[in-house]
């Protein structure tokens, strides 16, 4: 690799490692009951978010799923604000009300994780339509899993995007399992790119474990979208190394299958490529790791110092025109800490 390209690849490695270490810490904190509720980690799939997001501009938009810690982090939402959100603290990017599955940050145009499968797709169509109406050359990158392909909202959205030639980059993260249901058990046509093709949307399958391949595909497709060629669709073939959520006994897949995919760990793959080319000397790799560890540590410290939104504010922020919006104004129905 030439020096510039090697530097760029090291950057991608750094980004993937940020997601990996951040989420490994999340799992630890979840086990320690610091994080509650439902949590889904992206470990194994980092090349997808890292590759696609590396190609986006600040004015572009991102719509993601409930497995979106990595997308938020790589889009520029501070790690501390993400972790505080998962702790349920008011220092979080949604003041603690969104949690792991509903990270949101208007400043970085990160328009949400979404706990409803395929829930984000129609919303992405709206963002893109608004851009088109205003004559803005922006891309809306819309991430969703292959499980979403079975939902009606997926088909409605693809049709609208193609019909109106909207600037959407559809990024299907095909990790082969909709929770516990294998792709072949839920789709008559398992070649997902063909579904997009049926709507006249150009679509390609991409090796989702190879961050350089993902980035290359996203850059080409994104350039076409930005240039007014209408929606494009990438099927990113990847694999989740961990369970679906923190409560999943993984009865639906063989350990041997997981082991096989672990050999294609996107971080190990890129690291090996760089090392083989002499582009990742040991001290450089140590620096990358140290910087990631420091970022994660700082995020934990930030989240640990967080505070719970005052209970009295439980009924705020539901409507625009009534700041405190409880529809019952009697004293007995006001949120408060009860005397103990």
């Amino acid at each position: 690799m030439n020096a510039e390209r090697a530097e760029h690849a090291r950057g991608l490695l750094h980004q993937m490692l940020r997601v990996r270490r951040f989420e490994e810490k999340c799992v630890e904190l979840y086990s320690a009951a610091k994080i509650r509720g439902f949590m889904h980690v992206y470990i194994g799939e980092e090349a997808v978010a890292a590759g696609v997001l590396a190609t986006l501009e600040p004015e572009d938009a991102v719509v993601a799923t409930y497995r979106e810690h990595g997308h938020a982090l790589l889009r520029g939402v501070p790690a501390g604000a993400i972790l505080a959100e998962m702790y349920g603290f008011e220092q979080g990017c949604c003041r603690g009300r969104g949690g792991s599955m509903h990270l949101f940050d208007a400043a970085t145009r990160f328009f949400g994780g979404n706990a409803i499968v395929a829930g984000g797709l129609p919303l992405a169509i709206g963002l893109a339509l608004a851009d088109k109406m205003a004559g803005r050359s922006r891309v809306t990158a819309c991430f969703f899993g292959e499980g979403a392909v079975a939902e009606g909202a997926f088909h409605e959205s693809l049709n609208l995007a193609a019909l109106w030639r909207l600037p959407v980059l559809f990024c299907c993260e095909n990790n082969l399992y909709a929770m516990g249901t294998a792709l072949a058990r839920s789709e008559s046509q398992t070649d997902i790119a063909l579904k997009a093709a049926a709507y006249e949307i150009p679509a390609w399958p991409v090796d989702g474990m190879d961050v350089l391949a993902v980035e290359e595909a996203a850059r080409r497709a994104g350039a076409a979208v930005r240039g007014g060629a209408g929606p494009h669709f990438l099927e990113l073939r990847t694999y989740r190394f961990r369970a679906h959520s923190m409560y999943d006994p993984e009865r639906y897949r063989e350990k041997a299958e997981v082991a096989q995919w672990l050999e294609r760990d996107p971080i190990d793959l890129l690291r090996a490529t760089l090392e083989a080319a002499g582009d990742l000397p040991e001290p450089t790799w140590a620096e990358v790791q140290a910087s990631v560890d420091a970022e994660v540590q700082a995020a934990v410290a930030f989240a640990e110092a967080g505070t719970l939104e005052p209970v009295e504010e439980l009924t705020r922020h539901v409507y625009t025109d009534r700041d405190d919006t409880d529809r019952d104004d009697t004293e007995r129905n006001r949120p408060k800490r009860m005397p103990t």
């Binding site: 509650r36 349920g88 439980l314 009924t315 529809r327 949120p335």
Partner: peptide
């Protein structure tokens, strides 16, 4: 209360409890 369901740590203040 007349709000979308809150986050886990605020849940106990949202649900009707014997005290309330």
């Amino acid at each position: 209360f007349d709000i979308p369901y809150p986050s886990p740590k605020l849940e106990e203040y949202f649900l009707p409890t014997p005290d309330r």
